[in-house]
Structures are given as structure tokens and as C-alpha cells.
Design a protein around this nucleic acid. Structure first.
Lengths: 358, 358
DNA sequence: CTGAAAGCGCTTACAG
DNA sequence: CTGAAAGCGCTTACAG
């Protein structure tokens, strides 16, 4: 159109690939630099409103979506958080994952799934995940003895938050976030005491695990306040699973023998154990709660649908997930956060009742 | 040390940041190009074994981990697969997620979690996830009406595999992977027929959902082969949840009224519904399986621990996950794969029994 | 076969 | 305030 007749009409044909920032800039007749600043809301960019509008409009019209890899390379941020879980088949931590995912989304972050065992087995995967700047930070479930040993190393390479299961020792730089476990089991125990139970047993996970110890601590303190105790022969430790719950009840029944005095109520160390216990108690010919009350840690949707429905105390797992992400993104470091908000809540259901008169 | 005294001793101080390919190359005294080729196992790189060893050794010694962002930018591959799920609180698809994660890991891929509703609500998130080259491909659960409508668009932007819930129509370019639903419910129904049941009811998810239709198809065909039918008034459709199961039983009981003839067995459209049904049946004063047999689709670990334990047919969800990833990475396109390996397996448990004599 | 060079698409000191 | 230029760390045609 102009004198030379070239520059205005001879615009390069539409590029085949995805729209780049340069395309937007060209369309809006500004430099890529300015386009970048405006699109990213840089306050220093005080272009004329009309110019800004032109850039935004061009981006929208062309369907511009920033190339994440290029951005990452430039700013050394991936927009990803690694979530390392023990076992993707346990529903207990779904709520935690959910909380973490939601909070991440609020910050325009996405979650990348890692598996503890795989990461430990595959050195390459471990290195890529941890040191390959594949993620900006990592949230991992504590309580896995082998992985716990490496938390220090991991935290050195990457912002790290350990959730849920506190570890023995503090780890240089790793933040820990977990629910107030003793408060939860205290509540559960008090409920049973109020129902008249004087001897209360426990089926839980590995005895030495921090999680078990904290949960026992709450039980013992509540019993203690009532002048009662958690007897050595009334506790069984095993797996954190329904099978563990079943095995625990089997073991207790074996110990009791016929005619012996026995606890009138049992606490399940977690929700899976509780489910297993309920089934096992029935199989031994006892009726819950008439013969034995059962109450569990973790309030999941299943509890309400079990027969009998399972009394349980809720743990703020959703919050653990959100707080873990917040902490990670805030760059807080090395703290140990015990979540007390929301506090554990007792959900009374059909599996707990008054101590039998006998 | 040499004449000039500079070049040998004045090696640049160790760079502060992470080790780059250039550092490895320098340490091994080769070009970055060769280092890249050797480290990536490029068969064209036929350097002397000693040279190769030097490169590998240098990489190991320096703890070199490739920068994922730089690699991505260069090769236009992220090494990530997006997994878009409906509801991170449903345990049913954990097995699918697990299968997908494992298969992804085998190919050195990681999974990024997306949420259907969030992606639909947040246009930015949707665009970044789908078009930002944030992931190399996407696996999404079908059966979400709103998202199903956009499958075509998504598949156009990205290799897409729809799992589990087949959609109404085929989508240009999207592969679908799902279990053999009719085979599963056929097995379940045949089991009940063999137990002597002649009238069998159903509590399932939304009537028009493809998943429900396929599951009904199997039931009807098995009944048909035995000269029986699925009566209109013996089926209830609602949510795919335990609450849905409970509501379904409530509704059926209401319909039956006192003294009426009624089905002697019910099929649960999925595992959550089955759990809800078991609880509800008990609450209505009926004993399973004496008064009513219950059998469900999906064999999860919970079934065994319910009271009574729940008869169920397994679906190859783990395989759906692995096949989805394989398909995605193989670049296969536009097929509809019905998985028949492993075939559905019936797990007989205590919730199904012979038809009462009455 | 190997190396020098270009370039993936961004952002951001730096100069104007 | 804006633009030209450099550079994030890789890989890969291209030339030798």
C-alpha cells in the first residue's frame, strides 16, 4: 500500500505452530517485551490504555497461550508441586490430596504425582523428580522409614513439606504439617469413658511410628485423667490397613479366651483398621456395640454407611493439604506446624454404646 | 603451572547454580554436543569408549541432572501426562490412577492432576492445561456431560484418551478405553440366577449415562438368556454414590409396600452404591442375604471387610489406566478399545445366597 | 564421527 | 516508559 508496496502487505503467512508471544506483539504492533509486560500485569508497564487493550485483544484473538517450558527455563519456576504418596490405593489421603490440589490450583499450580517406593527404587526417577527442577517444591507423606532418612537431602535440593506423619527428628529445612493427633484420640477416648467404659483397648499401626505414638498419647492422657490406664495386653500393633484391623481383633480374641475379663470398647488406630475390626468382631460372634464398642480415627464417608455405622473422630486432612501447599509457596522453612483448626470433631454413630451391664 | 601460569590453575571457580551440561562437557573435555549425545544414548555417537566413559563419569561425579524445562523447550515434549478426574474423593478410580501412574513411570513420564470442574470453571487453567504445552497428552474420565462436549476440541489440541466412561459419540481423534461393562454385569446376573433368583432389581447411576446403559445391557442379556426380565419397577437410578445406594433402597422399599411380591436380589451399579445399599437394607430390618441378596459392580478391598462381605465383579481398572497411558504414548488415535483382558471376575461373598424358599 | 552455531519461546537487566 | 539484546540450558541440523 505504501511507496515500496512491500511492508504492509507482505506480512508473513500465518505460522503453522502455536501462537507465540512474538505473534501477539506483531499483531499489536509493539515489542515482545512490552507484550510480555502487559500480559503479565507488570505494574511498571504504563503503556497507553489503548495500547494495552490492543495487546490483550490480539492475544485473545490469536488464542495465545504462553509456552510453559520457555517461561520455566527463563524464570526457573515450573508451576508444579510434587506430591509424593505412599500408596495410591489408600483412600485416607484422598482428602489430603484434594486439599493440596485445590490450594495449588488457587495459585495456578498443578500437582505432579510421585510414588515413594518407585522414587526410592529408581535412582534416575528420584534425581529427575528432586533435582531436575521438574517441580518447584515437594510435599511428601512422612512415616515411611526409608524415605524419612532422605528428607534432609531432599529438603536441601528443594522446598519440602512433610505432611501428616511427623518424623523422629527435625530435618534441616523441611517443614512439617500434621493434625493434632493426641487431641483427636483424646476426644475419642473421652467419648468412650462417658459411655461408661472403663477398660479400653487399641488396634493400631506400627508401635514405634510417630503417628501411633501420638495417637496413643491422646488415649493415655484421657484415660489417665479418668484414673484409668491403657493396659499392655489390650493393645495390638500391626498394619495400617483393614487386614491389620482384622488381625488385631483376631489377636485380642485369642488373648481373651473364654470367660476372661476383657475391654468393653476398642479404638481403631485409623479408618481402615476400623473397617477391618468391624467385620472381624462380627465374625467372632460379637455384636457391636452390644458386646463391644468400636470407635476409629478418621472420619470418612464410608463410616456412615457401614453396619453398624462407625463412630469416628475427624482429622483436618483437607487442611493439612491446603496448609502444606500454602507453606510451600510462602517459602516458610523448617517449622513444625500442628494444625488445630478445624479441631478434631467426634461423630457419634451406632458402633459405640453404653458399657454392657455385665 | 605452565609457562603462562594461568590456564591450568585459573579454572573458573565452581559455578554456584546447578550443574549444566556445559559443565559436564568441560570436565570431560568434549563439546556439549557430544556430551548430550552420549548421555542420551544417541547410537550415532560412536566416540571412543574411553571418551564416553569420561563423559558419563563426569556427569555422575558432578551430579548432573538435565534441566527439564530447557529440554522441553528444545524438543517440545514435557514428559508429563495430564490426568483429569471428576472427583478426587471417590476411591473407585484410585486403581485406575495407580495403573496410569505406574505405566507412566515405566516410560519416565509423570502424571499431573487436573480436576474436571475446575478446568471447566477456570478458563485460564483450562487453556494452560490443554494448550499451554504443559502436558504431552491427556487422560480424562468420560461421563461428565459438560466436559464430554469439549472432548473434540481437546483432542484437537492434544493427544487425548477418554477412559472408563464411553461417550455418546466418537470424538475426532480421541481414543476411548474402557472395560467390558456388559460382560461384567452379565457375570453378576448369571451368578444370581444360578442361586435361584428369578426377579432381580437394580440400583444404579444416571439412567442415560453410557456406563449405566452398558451395565444394564449385560444384566438384561443374562436375564433374557434365562427367560427372565429386568422389570421397570425394579430399577432405580440416581447418584453413583453410597448416598445414591441408600436412596435407591429406600425408594424400592417404598414401592414394595407390605406383602407385595418383590425381587429377591439386587444389583448395585457400582461399589459405592453397593456400600450404601448394604447399610440401607439393614436399616429396613432386612437381613442380607437371607431376605435379599446384594451384588455389586467393582471389586474393591472394602468389599471383603463389609458385614456381610459384598459379592462383586471386578473390572480391570488398573489395566484401563495402563492401557490409556500406553495408547497415549504410542500415538494411537481415534480408536475405541474395550478391554477384555483380564476379564471380569466374580468374587462370591456373603452378601449373595440362595433365593429364600418363600 | 564431532563441534560450532543456531534456536526453542520466553523475560528482564540494560540502554535510550 | 519502551525496545533491542542477551540468555535461561538444552538438542540437532549443518558443516567439516
Amino acid at each position: 500500500m505504501n511507496a515500496s508496496g512491500q511492508h504492509t502487505t507482505a506480512r508473513p503467512g500465518p505460522r503453522s505452530g502455536p501462537v507465540r508471544l512474538a505473534d501477539v506483539a506483531a499483531a499489536a504492533q509493539v515489542s515482545p517485551a512490552l507484550a510480555s509486560r502487559v500480559l503479565n500485569g507488570d505494574p511498571a508497564a504504563r503503556a497507553a490504555p489503548a495500547t494495552k487493550a490492543r495487546i490483550v485483544e490480539a492475544a485473545a484473538r490469536l488464542g495465545y497461550v504462553p509456552n510453559v517450558a520457555a517461561k520455566s527455563l527463563r524464570v526457573s519456576r515450573t508451576g508444579l508441586i510434587g506430591l509424593v504418596v505412599h500408596d495410591l490405593s489408600s483412600p485416607i489421603y484422598l482428602e489430603l490430596m484434594r486439599g493440596a490440589r485445590e490450594e495449588a490450583a488457587r495459585h495456578s499450580y498443578f500437582l505432579v504425582l510421585g510414588d515413594v517406593d518407585e522414587l526410592l527404587d529408581d535412582d534416575d526417577a528420584f534425581r529427575i523428580f528432586i533435582s531436575g527442577r521438574r517441580v518447584d517444591g515437594i510435599i511428601m507423606q512422612g512415616g515411611h522409614s526409608e524415605l524419612d532418612l532422605r528428607i534432609g537431602d531432599i529438603a536441601q535440593a528443594l522446598p519440602t513439606v512433610v505432611v501428616n506423619a511427623p518424623t523422629e527428628v527435625d530435618h534441616e529445612g523441611a517443614t512439617q504439617v500434621f493434625p493434632d493427633e493426641p487431641a483427636a484420640t483424646r476426644l475419642l477416648t473421652q467419648h468412650l469413658i462417658e459411655l461408661g467404659h472403663r477398660r479400653i483397648g487399641l488396634v493400631s499401626g506400627p508401635r514405634q511410628s510417630m503417628t501411633n505414638r501420638l495417637r496413643e498419647e491422646g488415649i493415655v492422657s484421657a484415660l489417665d485423667a479418668a484414673g484409668l490406664e491403657l493396659r499392655e495386653d489390650d493393645r495390638v500393633h500391626g498394619e495400617w490397613s483393614a487386614d491389620g484391623g482384622r488381625a488385631g481383633v483376631d489377636e485380642l480374641v485369642r488373648r481373651w479366651g473364654p470367660g476372661t475379663d476383657r475391654p468393653s470398647a476398642l479404638i481403631a488406630g485409623n479408618s481402615l483398621i476400623g473397617i477391618g475390626m468391624l467385620g472381624a468382631v462380627g465374625r467372632h460372634g460379637m455384636v457391636v456395640p452390644r458386646d463391644l464398642s468400636v470407635a476409629a480415627v478418621h472420619d470418612t464417608w464410608i463410616n456412615e454407611h457401614l453396619a453398624p455405622s462407625l463412630t469416628a473422630v475427624s482429622l483436618p486432612l483437607h487442611e493439612v493439604g491446603t496448609v502444606a501447599v500454602k507453606t510451600l509457596l510462602a517459602g516458610t522453612n523448617g517449622d513444625r506446624l500442628t494444625l488445630s483448626d478445624p479441631p478434631p470433631v467426634l461423630h457419634r454413630r451406632a458402633s459405640t454404646g453404653a458399657r454392657p451391664a455385665g
